[in-house]
């Protein structure tokens, strides 16, 4: 337990000390919010779909959390290259605890970033319909953060260097985001796209968060929680397996 705590604390300290990357990580969400949010608002309204900022904000928060988490997960590759992973891996700590410490650390950092972006969306005109459901919103944000941190760490476990990063980012992370209903509604889609978005666990994160903030949803909120938790468990299982096979 203490091992999980100290691994979590280390991630947090590293995050707080890197001020530049805190600011850097909210750059992209802000651009999305401005460009898409204000750019597509008129089209969205004309289509009778309502206020686009209201629709987009949960998606942007999920984006922040997803990208930050994956990136913190991939920091394991740095630990490998700078030798620190050896220090962690020879310690008498079961692999699942090392993974959990890292994943919880990454998830906490991502939630902090997500919260910052949430504040920014408020300035852009976003309004949660019911402030009382904010805790529920944080639950969804946490589940998304946990899932994506676990994904990042599991992928990173077997990578030797950062060269694979663009590949993963462009072919795994970006599609997960774009096909999650973050920027367009998941209704009336072509069959293939419909199928892909339904098997994307992040669709459930976005939808759940939208439900918590605005009371709008296409999936049952419980289904969303179940999907996020279930997929997280599978990925953690896969990550532990990967961690056990690491040779340094």
């Amino acid at each position: 337990m203490n091992a999980i705590y100290i691994l979590w604390l280390r991630q947090l300290k590293r995050f707080i000390r890197k001020k530049a990357s805190i600011v850097g990580a909210i750059g992209q969400p802000i651009i999305f919010l401005l460009a898409f949010g204000f750019g597509l608002s008129p089209v969205f309204a004309k289509a009778g779909a309502g206020n686009y900022i209201q629709f987009l904000a949960p998606g942007i928060i999920v984006m922040t959390v997803l990208f930050t988490s994956i990136f913190t997960g991939l920091e394991i590759i740095w630990d490998k290259q700078f030798g620190f992973l050896k220090e962690t891996f020879v310690a008498p700590v079961p692999r699942y605890q090392i993974l959990l410490g890292k994943v919880l650390g990454g998830a906490t950092v991502a939630m902090a970033q997500g919260f910052l972006v949430f504040i920014i969306t408020l300035f852009a005109g976003f309004r949660p319909v019911n402030w009382l459901s904010l805790p529920l919103a944080f639950l969804y944000i946490f589940l998304v953060a946990f899932l994506s941190s676990a994904l990042g760490a599991s992928i990173a476990a077997r990578l030797e260097d950062m060269q694979g990063f663009p590949l993963i980012f462009n072919f795994v992370v970006q599609p997960l985001f774009y096909l999650s209903g973050a920027i367009f509604p998941l209704q009336n889609l072509p069959a293939a796209l419909n199928f892909v978005t339904k098997i994307n666990p992040f669709s459930y994160g976005v939808d759940g968060l939208r439900f918590a903030f605005s009371g709008v949803n296409i999936f049952s909120p419980f289904l969303s929680i179940a999907v996020l938790m279930g997929v997280s468990l599978i990925i953690i299982g896969f990550g532990v397996y990967q961690f056990k096979k690491v040779q340094l």
Binding site: R10, K13, R14, R17, K18, F82, G83, F84, K86, E87, V90
Partner: peptide, 15 residues
């Protein structure tokens, strides 16, 4: 049962 001092660096530079 063991402790080890590695040949290659293994510290966290940010701590």
């Amino acid at each position: 049962s063991f402790g080890i001092v590695f040949q290659d660096p293994s510290l966290d530079n940010e701590l």
